[in-house]
Design a protein around this nucleic acid. Sequence first.
DNA 1: ACGGCATGTCCAA
DNA 2: TGGACCTGCCGTG
Length: 333
Amino acid sequence: MPEGHSVHRIARQFDRNFVGRTVTASSPQGRFAEGAAVISGRTVTSVRAVGKQMFLEFDDDIWLRVHLGMYGAWDFAGEILVDPTIASANGRMGQTNQRGTTLEDEPILDSAGENSLTSIGAPRRTRVHVRMSEQTTGLPDEGAEWPPPIVGQVRLRLLTDVTCADLRGPTACELLTPDEVSAVIAKLGPDPLVDDVQEGEERFVSVVRRKPTSIALLLMDPSVVSGIGNVYRAELLFRARLNPHTPGRDVPEEVVRELWRDWVRLLSIGVETGQMMTMDGLGPDAYRKAMAHRDDRHWVYHRAGLPCRVCGTAIVVEELATRKLYWCPTCQA
DNA sequence: ACGGCATGTCCAA
DNA sequence: TGGACCTGCCGTG
């Protein structure tokens, strides 16, 4: 699954292309047939993203909750109004590959040529086609079929007159009442893009400073803080030069605050660029070099056995609650 | 063709 | 702590 930044980007696409519009809903795969029947013909009234969850509101207080889990993805097709702050042209949102980057994570900084849909300025309509791959140019796709053919297992298809969104492989896709939505959100830790940033910091600090649990586990706990996944966790801990096994209550308060502030920074960069940029402190040359290969984009994530970029010590990987934890035993002593 | 693996979360024992 | 859930990509043969 996308980490928190992707879900906020997906929510923006829904805000631009679905909110205020009536949709036809279906479940080509069949597993959400009943729910699709309920929302079909209704108008989308709002969208919210909290952490890795997205909530789409329909007429009559009907809410759709979607969690993509590790494998879920939304594919947008048809006419898409590109958010000017969404720089990436890729229509595929959220799906992941093996190398530790999202498919939308293609280099975009040097792609401002004609093949790029990158839109710096006024939003505009453009056409993209379904199931964009890494090689997709993003060129307008005038001859595309409408509605797009169903490819693979589509749990839910939402169609406006001009835009298609296909949901596949979610871990959660269900209809909720407003109260149920509130209950879900109440259980989630603060999200810098939802909660007041200062309030979020206080909540985060007070919870972390009370727990005996390791900071590595706390950062991945959705009830402690929203949106951080395995990549951001490793990178945040390295950037703080913090030993992942330090119990939350033993992390100095200032360091906990700095972790939150760094998360605020990384999340906003991620949402704006569509890339998990965790080495933003690099100079221009080093940065270009790092971005050239997707395996070179992080300080420690996915770098087991490779020399630490700072001290040269071999990066360690260990299994923690079934997830891989990468860290530098010297820098994060 | 097939097995392993992946940016996640929940729940039962 | 371990299993269940969900899909697609990549390496191996």
